[in-house]
Amino acid sequence: MTDLPAPEKRVWLRHPSLRIGAVASLVFLLVGFVSIAWVPYPIEVINVGAAMQDPSPAHWLGTDHLGRDMLSMIMKGTLTSFVVAAIAVAIGALIGVPLGLAAAAWGGPAEWFILRVNDFLFAFPALIIAILITTIFGPSAINAMIAVGIFNIPVFARVARGGALSLKTLDYVGAARLAGMGPIEIARRHILPNIASLIIVQATIQLALGILAEASLSYVGLGTQPPATSLGLMLKDAQTYALLKPSLALIPGITIILIVVALNLAGDGLRDQLDPKLRRLGGARGAA
């Protein structure tokens, strides 16, 4: 038994930007995961004698100011960036989605309160949250995750609430209530599956934003700390040497751009796919 009817599945694969974005994102993710098991050179080993080499068969992307292999650094950095952004998305979604659903389900004072908290969090961009957290607990990748994650909460809450509100008035939710289902059961069986696509789209977009945010935080020293590395941290190191060797700044920068573009393409493609107008057309065709 399939979840989706067949025609939708074919369209899914036909969308070019979705296909390109999804494939590229997966490639970067794969590169990141490979770095757990294997990198060309260990990045903990400093070899100042081999610093700032140009790309060569031994070092495909050259070496940095400490003689570390840039390709290895990029692989490890990609993993860190993904992990930080993904955990931040998970924090945002796991807290934000239930909050949004609760706001939609209960309405009244509960909704008012959740919306105000939401507005409030919007007033603190991730960076300000990060500054506060860092001042208290000191800089680290974990704190960067938490800061970006907190900032993600209102985003997911809003998406979930919006989706749930538009579904709440639909009669099948009423029918489920008549069948004696409670709000949690209804959310699980009727609301979540139907807003899952919206949430996935948002998660893709927030993942891209998270990678950018991690880069910013690490760049100003509030995120990932050495000896671990991330794409943002590589840029921080590169700033000093950018005049001598611009490729130290270009390579991680372009990597960030490529990852973010790939994720955004996938997100945009997915959203086009799920655009209600397009879907309605598909639905009408299915019924005919």
Partner: peptide, 21 residues
């Protein structure tokens, strides 16, 4: 699409390299 993906600090570094250096 590219503009959205560019980190602003990195873009700043490039601007310095081009227009200042």
């Amino acid at each position: 699409q590219l503009g959205v993906a560019i980190p602003n600090f990195w873009f700043g570094m490039l601007l310095v390299l081009l227009f200042s250096v």
